[in-house]
Structure formats: C-alpha cells, structure tokens
Computed example of a mutant assay.
Amino acid sequence: MAQIELYMIRHGLAGERGTYANDDERPLTEEGIRRTRRVAKRLHALNIRFDRILTSPLARARQTAEILQTYKLGQLEESPHLAPGGDLSVWLSWLQQWRQSGGDCLAIVGHEPDLGEWAEILVWGKPQQHLILKKAGIIGLILPEADSPIGRSQMFWLTPPRFFVD
C-alpha cells in the first residue's frame, strides 16, 4: 500500500445558524458558493485531483463537494461518518477498505470542530484543540503506508481560503 494524501476541506460559508428549522438543510450563501468556486478553481489550476471526494450528507458540505466535483477534482460519495459528531474510528475502517482499492488521494468535506480534531488525532495522537479550519479552508495530511494513521500522519498543508481567492 502507498501513502495517502488526505485533503480535509471544511464546507464553505453557510446560512446563519438557527435560521433553518433543520440545520442539516442549511445551504451555502451566495458568497460561500463564490468563494468555494474560487478555491476549487485554484485546486484545479494546481493540478490537484482526488480519487474520491467523500462528503458529509449535510447540505452545506454536499454543496461544497459538488462544487469541487464540477472542476473535475474527483468522484463524489456521501458518508454519514462525516456529519457533525462523526466517529473517526468508523471512518478509519472505511478508509482501510478504500485504500485497498488502490486510491492514493482523498478529499473529505465536513465540519468544524470535527475536521480540526481529526487532523490533530491523526498527527499527534490526541486532540489538542489548536487547529481551527476556516470555512472552505484545507488541511492536507500524508497518511502512512501501513498500520494506523493515528499519531503517525504528517501535515503538509493548512490553508485558509483567502490564500486561494484572487
């Protein structure tokens, strides 16, 4: 098995919390769509392609992933494990199975504080509550070739969206 490049992408700017009867349906704002498109366009220009884009089922994350997909950045799949409060160990089981299919570059689109905490666990072995991923921001990790990635992954990218926007 090869190393995996994992891009953890937070959903774009969404409608105000509490303004929707069902928060799961809260969509991206027009500004969120515009900024997310700019991020996707920049990733495309950098020739970054994902074997898979795995997304939370919540509307704002799904819209973000769909924008990434429109730039031909990868095949889209929904995962309940990426919804807020998702279980990292369950997602790691999915990752192990996916890894056996031969993929080596994965994007996951989700929410804070989960993505920041998951990144900390993968890099340092436990949550530090220091990594904060801005909306439409990206954390890039390299997961080891074998064994558990917990505490053994390397961070190569932590970028707020403003570095992608012209």
Rank of each mutant, 00 (worst) to 15 (best):
A2W: 15
I4N: 11
I4Y: 08
L6D: 01
Y7W: 13
M8G: 05
H11G: 02
H11V: 06
G12P: 05
G12D: 02
L13M: 03
G15K: 12
G15L: 05
R17I: 09
G18A: 02
T19C: 00
Y20T: 01
A21I: 12
N22L: 01
E25H: 07
P27C: 06
P27N: 00
T29E: 10
T29V: 01
T29W: 10
E30V: 12
E30M: 08
E31Y: 10
I33S: 05
R34I: 00
R34N: 11
R34S: 14
R35K: 04
R37H: 10
R37I: 00
R38S: 13
R38C: 09
R38M: 14
V39K: 07
K41P: 05
R42T: 10
H44N: 11
H44L: 01
A45Q: 14
A45C: 03
L46G: 01
N47R: 15
I48W: 10
I48S: 04
D51E: 04
R52P: 01
I53E: 02
I53D: 02
I53R: 02
L54W: 07
T55M: 05
L58D: 09
L58G: 00
R60D: 04
A61R: 03
R62D: 04
R62P: 00
T64G: 12
T64H: 03
T64C: 08
A65P: 00
A65F: 09
I67R: 02
I67L: 04
L68R: 06
K72N: 12
E78I: 14
S79P: 01
S79L: 04
S79F: 08
S79Q: 03
H81M: 08
L82P: 01
G85K: 01
G86Y: 01
G86C: 07
L88Q: 01
L88H: 00
W91P: 00
W94R: 11
L95A: 03
L95C: 04
Q100R: 15
Q100C: 14
S101R: 15
G102R: 06
G102P: 14
G103T: 02
D104I: 05
L106D: 09
A107F: 08
I108F: 01
V109P: 12
G110P: 06
G110F: 09
G110R: 06
E112P: 11
E112H: 02
D114I: 07
D114C: 08
D114W: 12
G116T: 11
G116S: 12
E117C: 08
I121A: 02
V123R: 08
V123S: 08
G125C: 07
K126H: 10
P127T: 11
P127S: 14
P127I: 10
Q129W: 12
H130C: 13
H130G: 14
H130F: 13
L131T: 10
L131C: 05
I132Q: 14
L133Q: 14
A136W: 03
I138E: 09
G140P: 11
S148E: 13
S148I: 05
P149H: 12
P149Q: 15
I150H: 08
Q154Y: 11
W157K: 12
W157D: 08
L158R: 13
P160M: 09
P161K: 07
P161T: 04
P161F: 05
D166E: 15
